[in-house]
Amino acid sequence: MLGFPPDARLLIINADDFGMCHSINEAIIGTLSGPLVRSTSLMVVCPWALHAMRFLKGHPEIPFGIHLTVISDPRDYRWGPITCREKVPTLVDPSGYFYDFDSMPVLLAQAKPDELELEFRAQIETVLSAGLKPTHLDWHALRFGDRRDILDLMIRLAMEYGLALRAIGRDVIVKLQNQGYPTIDYDFLDSYSLDPGSKSTLYVSLLHELPVGLNEWAVHPGLDNAELLVLEPANHHERQTDFDFWTSQKAKEVIKEEGIILLDYRPLQAVWRDMNPSEKLM
């Protein structure tokens, strides 16, 4: 669909969580200056989003997506909706912030579709009104469970705003592709699912085995400094190991050796943007 040979192995390496905190921003900026990580996703509701947005404003050549967020994971470092809380009561916990990761079942059980739409639109509009040009939508930490409607909402918003979408689930991927919307061909790899102790080895073997088609790996670079150590005391090495690998000579060599073609979401977005929404069948 994107003009590559059928047996091409394509990979988008996307740095998630841009804007979450300073040490993550620094790490993402660091990886983006190298040749491998070519795309990032902005968490517009987070405290360090302005820093990230200022960087993106100054680097319009860097493609980025909007990391739609309704989960606030660190215990004492919180964020909440852009929309005023009274309009999205089903999205916030009693303290007024988004639910944390462990409370996701509560959120999924109660979140009303219209409130989710209101908040997602607010996050998208915030980015657009800052004069930034995102390429795609993805999401932060969400497990959709049986709330397929949340994914459908994101698909609808992506189509409406002319943005590509990080698709998930075979049925969704097949449906979108057959309507002419290019997507990744497989569920994305979440770097949090790799054991930090053997991550570098795992990445190398996964690159060797990268399947034909368009893959996306959601990586999470961060620096093990004082800030990250208090924000994520249990699993901060997850992010440092990502930063280390995606700035390493080894990663560059393996990708070159394997003939893997690195991409970002721009070629996908070009198609999504040009599709006529009135003809959509979702």
Binding site: Y186, D187, L189, D190, S193, D195, L202, L206, E209, N215
Partner: peptide, 10 residues
């Protein structure tokens, strides 16, 4: 081996 969601493990 432990199995990774998404692309899976080999």
């Amino acid at each position: 081996t432990p199995v990774i969601p998404g692309v899976g493990n080999i």
